[in-house]
Design a protein around this nucleic acid. Structure first.
Lengths: 105, 105
DNA sequence: CTTATATGATACCGTTTGGTTTCATGTCAA
DNA sequence: TTGACATGAAACCAAACGGTATCATATAAG
């Protein structure tokens, strides 16, 4: 699997997307992240691992804690991928606009 | 599940992302799409269904054929979601630039 | 030293996913 | 009408997923 595959897969789960938003507010230990969700710590730890596989989260061990940090760069790949379709929805909006205008005549 | 969940889930599979790129070139029947992939037609039909659930593909029946058309609007939601993190990678780039400059002194 | 804490690792489980094969149905064509 | 063809639908299967409980380990604290 490519890196891009890992990133898209990481984003597929709503819990993982929430974790990214949480880490956008600041670094968090595994326990701190887990306390925000209605599931056990191991479950959250697994999600963090998937995010790590996608390069979206990096971990720094500090004593017995592990600090999780958002690493947003791979999201740029997603943005680039999606951007390839922007021309299409622009076209659609233009077509819709035109249709509305002609219908309006 | 929200629409956004469906869209992110639809994008999680590389075959489905390829299908979207293919449909960006033009409308295709189920068979035409399936012929481009190394899997059976029912498998591709299932992927098209998932894409349809995410609102990314619409279908128009014409005779015994079913024309699949790209519907890119939901991708705008993805773009918006990802855009929330752009400030972070801008910050990172700025930090990196600064570090390089100070190291350079 | 002993104890509490933060975490990783492992085993396990039910559901979903991504694929297949097979069959039924509707439509086009000879 | 008869046959070929495009598709949907259903049953099935192995693997992946998202979760749990449990245990081992390393570090912090009393």
């Amino acid at each position: 699997m490519t890196i891009q595959d890992h990133v898209f897969k990481a984003l597929a789960d709503p819990t993982r997307r929430s974790i990214l938003l949480l880490l956008a507010e600041g670094d968090r230990t595994v326990g701190e992240v887990a306390s925000r969700f209605d599931m056990t710590r191991p479950a959250v730890a697994k999600h963090l691992k998937v995010l790590g596989d996608g390069g979206l989260v990096s971990v720094e061990a500090r004593g017995r804690e592990r600090i999780n940090r958002l690493n947003p760069e791979p999201l740029a790949d997603v943005a680039r991928w999606v951007a390839r379709f922007e021309v299409f929805w622009d076209q659609r909006l233009a077509a819709l606009k035109k249709e509305v205008e002609t219908t309006h005549d």
